[in-house]
């Protein structure tokens, strides 16, 4: 036997790979993508494709020409960043803004920290927040979902449920009237996705299907999303009980805005979330509290992105102080 292979144990491997996990997340996002096309039409496809292409091109260029490394764009991580960034944008956003967002997400959010595995903040969220602050008008002009034939240009625009909530609070109207008066779509529409919002955040049902898929394939564990949902439900529930006119009920919070998308796909990002169950629980609680605080008391109608980014900054500390349960 020519040249036996010698290596330390173990001598077998589970067959798991980065690609399997990344493409698994992509598959879990497919139901949400289908819904986005059903509600927002061609615009959804264009935005998603542009974002993905831009992210891949930037990662390739930075790796090959700046860092002089072998490009790894096929491992799936830049692809996921592209899809998630797109899912955080309205379907009528100008393409050049998407490209800038991709450059910030990949260049600053990921590569400047050292590439895969080294970033502190979720790259898609870094891109999204950058765009929100730099282009507030374009980032908050939401098309009204008009089905698959939603026109690409000059689509009718309207406010998202959370924006309407913020407006109602400012004008002093009791929030409980929002849904009963029909200003905000009913719960069925919120659950299925027939409401204003970014591409990926509207269809709660589709996202939950994706969640089940991720759990089944053992790509993520249940701890972070469930902790976020539970914390949001409890915290907003307490507020609602204290003052139902000012604070809307918890189910509304769970179904609107980036709650589902953020809790299931963004907060569970491997690189930026804690490594132990205790750490993940604290992380989830933190995100839940911050999201409700920003939504109810902050200037922005949506708080999920900021909440996740803030807790991303705490992840190294959580890893340091919340260790897994030792055997002995």
């Amino acid at each position: 036997m020519k040249n036996r292979i010698i290596s330390p144990s173990p001598h077998v491997h589970s067959g798991d790979s980065i690609e399997k996990n990344m493409y698994g997340v992509l598959i879990a996002l497919v139901p949400a993508f289908i819904c986005s096309v059903l509600f927002f039409g061609l615009g959804a496809v264009v935005v998603t494709l542009t974002s993905v292409a831009a992210c891949l091109v930037f990662e390739y260029a930075i790796q090959k020409f700046l860092l002089r490394q072998c490009p790894t764009i096929f491992d799936g991580s830049a692809l996921i960043t592209g899809v998630l960034l797109a899912f955080n944008l309205p379907s009528n956003i100008p393409l050049w803004i998407i490209v800038i967002g991709a450059l910030v997400a990949i260049g600053i959010g990921k590569m400047s920290f050292g590439g895969l595995g080294c970033n502190i903040f979720n790259p898609a969220l870094v891109g999204r927040v950058f765009l929100l602050i730099s282009f507030p008008v374009q980032m908050t002009t939401w098309p009204v979902p008009a089905g698959i034939h939603t026109p690409l240009v000059d689509a009718a625009t309207g406010a998202t449920p959370l924006a309407l909530l913020k407006a109602a609070v400012h004008t002093g109207k009791p929030v409980s009237e929002l849904i009963s008066s029909g200003t905000v779509s009913g719960y069925r529409d919120l659950f299925l996705g027939n409401t204003g919002g970014s591409l990926g955040e509207v269809a709660a049902l589709a996202l939950l299907i994706g969640f089940v898929y991720l759990l089944f394939c053992k790509i993520i564990t249940w701890h972070i999303p469930v902790t976020i949902f539970a914390t949001v439900f409890l915290f907003s529930g307490i507020l609602h009980l204290a003052n139902p006119d000012l604070f809307i009920n918890p189910v509304f919070h769970l179904l609107t805005g980036g709650m589902m998308l953020g809790a299931i796909f963004m907060a569970t990002d491997y690189v930026t979330s804690p490594m132990s169950v205790k750490g993940m629980t604290v992380y989830g609680i933190g995100i839940g509290i911050l999201t409700v605080l920003i939504r109810q008391f902050g200037a922005y109608p949506e708080g999920m992105s900021f909440a996740i980014l803030i807790m991303n900054a705490f992840t190294p500390l959580l890893n340091r102080y919340f260790k897994p349960a030792r055997f002995a």
């Binding site: 040249n3 292979i5 010698i6």
Partner: peptide
């Protein structure tokens, strides 16, 4: 001459 092929971690200590 090499008599086998080392496939472990690329460290002399290992």
């Amino acid at each position: 001459p090499r008599t086998n092929r080392y496939d472990g971690a690329p460290s002399c200590a290992v």
